[in-house]
């Protein structure tokens, strides 16, 4: 009897399908993701171009506001900026410049936009990177413990705090902290002008200036991570494999660390990366409040113009960052979840 049965249990072709080489699948997956990321980026370029052309207001008029100018001078300025050409011509020029790494010239700063963006990217990376890392560590740590001891006092306090911070407008929280810590921490900028030029003093000075902006951004962002981690761990709390783990005699913290958290991380990772746009959003507010010389502040300054080339460039960089984060999320998910690897 058993001979007949074993012959039937597992259809052989199903086995063969699973034995397909994983390597080629991974490469195809990567290429597919990169391809769709590039497509998104191309759409962002087009959208950015159109969007900033639709903003009401003549840039030439804005630039010359308050100064006596003759119509001839206005026409000359128009020609220099290229805004007198038809839309399609402007677009072709824009794309051509983009391919050469030329993002145009800022109306306000009278400097190449590419230079401005590169200069301001560093401070923003420092601020957003530090705050995001801190927020992830804090959010996951508190989220995991809140879920594990659901409805305990710890859970209520940590979730309550997180919700309060989350619901505060970031600029308002920034201003509050600014007032509260006036005198303790610097109120703006990234470094004092009189700091000695050696690396050590400079680093310390930047770190000193970083404290408040970073705190504000972290406070605003970690709450989301906490809530997401908490709810995805709660989803896993009744999973049967946790009963298996307990039945094996594992300590409670091992059940959590080895079995529950790796599974709960899956939705969390996706959301953490998808929320990156929100972090950038927060960065604009925080950089403005603390005059942190990053892309956010640059964007804010450019808005007052409006300095269209700068806005367009900043839009491109920020959108590219969000797209990049999405690709990273997909890749990381593949590492974390073997089930995704199989498809």
């Amino acid at each position: 009897m058993s001979d007949v049965l074993t012959g039937i249990e597992q259809p052989a072709d199903e086995e063969a399908a699973r034995g397909a080489p994983r390597g080629s699948g991974a490469v195809r997956f990567l290429l597919g993701k990169l391809g769709s990321a590039l497509l998104s980026l191309a759409l962002v370029v087009v959208l950015g171009f159109l969007l900033f052309r639709m903003i009401p207001g003549d840039p030439v008029v804005t630039m010359t506001r308050g100064r006596p100018v003759s119509p001839e001078q206005l026409a000359e300025l128009r020609e220099r900026l290229g805004v007198d050409k038809p839309m399609w011509q402007q677009f072709v020029d824009y794309i051509g410049g983009l391919l050469r790494g030329d993002l145009g010239t800022s109306y306000l700063f009278q400097r190449p936009v590419a230079d401005l963006l590169t200069e301001r990217l560093g401070p923003t990376l420092l601020l957003v990177g530090t705050a995001t890392l801190l927020a992830i560590v804090l959010g996951l740590w508190f989220g995991i413990r809140s879920a594990w001891r659901r409805n305990s006092r710890f859970d209520k306090v940590s979730t309550g705090t997180a919700l309060t911070l989350w619901s505060m407008p970031q600029f308002w929280l920034g201003l509050l902290l600014l007032i509260a810590f006036a005198g303790v921490f610097p109120s703006g900028g990234m470094r004092y002008s009189d700091t000695p030029p050696d690396v050590f003093s400079q680093t310390l000075d930047v770190a000193y200036h970083l404290v408040l902006p970073c705190l504000t951004l972290t406070a605003a962002v970690y709450a989301q991570y906490l809530l997401v981690m908490r709810s995805s761990l709660l989803e896993e709390m009744n999973a049967e494999y946790l009963t298996t783990a307990r039945a094996k005699g594992l300590r409670d913290d091992l059940v959590r660390r080895r079995h529950a958290v790796p599974n709960a991380l899956l939705p969390t990772v996706t959301l953490v990366f998808l929320q990156f746009g929100m972090v950038l959003n927060g960065a604009v507010a925080v950089e403005t409040v603390y005059s942190w010389p990053g892309l956010g502040l640059l964007t804010y300054e450019a808005l007052s113009g409006p300095d269209l080339p700068v806005l367009q460039g900043a839009f491109l960089v920020l959108a590219a960052a969000v797209i990049l984060m999405n690709v990273l999320a997909d890749l990381l998910y593949r590492v974390l979840d073997p089930r995704v690897r199989a498809t």
């Binding site: 049967e240 494999y241 298996t244 039945a247 005699g249 899956l266």
Partner: peptide, 18 residues
């Protein structure tokens, strides 16, 4: 598990998927 162990109903859910 050392003295008594359990075979759970849904092996699909009783094993850790990752």
């Amino acid at each position: 598990w050392a003295s008594a162990s359990v075979v759970f109903q849904g092996a699909m859910h009783a094993l850790n998927p990752v």
